[in-house]
């Protein structure tokens, strides 16, 4: 039995026990996904429709109208013609090198996952800001979500929902949601206590205080979180292509397996271009808001 004493080799669990443990856990999860997979899939059905609809809209619209819409959005958010010009150049480059369709798929994926991340992340961040106990529970969870290798949580998602758009979307959201949550929490905790006291003194209810004071004042910080989330979602797009997500990740994946250097580089550059556009637009928006609020502290 004792091939090695415990002080020479780490006294690990018996091999058979470990195998049995893994089998038991895998079996239980498989059982769970077999019995509830359909139900859960049905729950995500509307999401799939939304995602597909949005993608179709982007793909079927003429390229110039999409470009126009993107530019209008960029201008409204940033109020900067420089950023609009950069956006046009980026999209012309993408279109000229034949990556328009993949880019539209990726954009719809990013848009929907960012919306989802905001829809879940902001309320969770608010709850965290309201109670220290919630914060101590949620913070380590976020740490795990951010450090766990992305491939690892593709496994249960695929086991549960198979491969396709929705599992890809879930994987992207899980990977990208922590910054929104963290920065919503931070933003609300940083709101000036005197302003909150004033709002109390005028008889504001908890809801009035949240909607009228805390969220607006935390908004620039929340926007910084949204910016981070978009960046992380873009980074996740390539990994998500492994489970069947369409878009710029697919050709990248193909070029890894077939050693097409140029194809990989071009699509990689397209992702970078998208990232720069999204980043500059959302940052300019956040900065514009911050400028307006910051002035209040002189005087």
């Amino acid at each position: 039995m004792a091939k090695n004493a415990w002080w020479i080799e780490f006294p690990a669990m018996e091999r058979e026990t470990l195998v049995a443990l893994r089998k038991a856990l895998d079996g239980a999860y498989r059982e769970f996904s077999r019995s509830y997979g359909d139900v859960i899939e049905a729950v995500f059905e509307p999401l799939l429709h939304f995602l597909v609809g949005f993608e179709k809209l982007l793909l079927n619209a003429p390229w110039w109208s999409v470009l126009l819409a993107v530019c209008a959005f960029a201008y409204l958010a940033s109020r900067s013609w420089k950023i609009v010009a950069g956006t046009i150049i980026a999209f012309l480059f993408i279109g000229y090198f034949g990556m328009w369709e993949d880019t539209m798929s990726t954009m719809s994926m990013i848009a929907v996952s960012t919306l989802l991340a905001i829809a879940f992340g902001v309320p969770v961040g608010i709850l965290m800001a309201r109670s220290n106990r919630t914060q101590t529970v949620v913070t380590p969870l976020l740490d795990v979500m951010q450090t766990m290798p992305a491939f690892v949580y593709l496994i249960p998602v695929v086991m549960l929902l198979g491969i396709g758009k929705v599992p890809g979307l879930l994987a992207v959201v899980i990977y990208a949601i922590p910054p929104v949550i963290r920065l919503t929490n931070l933003g609300i905790r940083l709101v000036d206590r005197e302003v909150l006291e004033a709002s109390d003194a005028f008889g504001a209810s908890g809801w009035q205080r949240l909607v009228g004071v805390q969220i607006p004042l935390a908004f620039p910080t929340i926007m910084a979180g949204v910016n981070q989330t978009i960046m992380m979602a873009l980074a996740m797009v390539v990994i998500a292509s492994m489970i069947g997500v369409q878009g710029l990740g697919q050709p990248v994946l193909r070029s890894i397996t077939n050693q097409y250097f140029t194809l990989g580089l071009l699509n990689g550059l397209a992702i970078v271009a998208l990232a720069i556009v999204f980043d500059r637009v959302s940052q300019a928006y956040g900065k514009r808001l911050q400028l307006q609020y910051k002035q209040a502290h002189h005087g």
Binding site: E197, A198, G212, L217
Partner: peptide, 18 residues
């Protein structure tokens, strides 16, 4: 009571910057 009967002015103004 706070809404209708007593209101407050603060040392460092405590205005809402937004």
């Amino acid at each position: 009571f706070r809404r209708h009967r007593a209101s407050m002015v603060f040392q460092r103004f405590a205005l809402m910057p937004h």
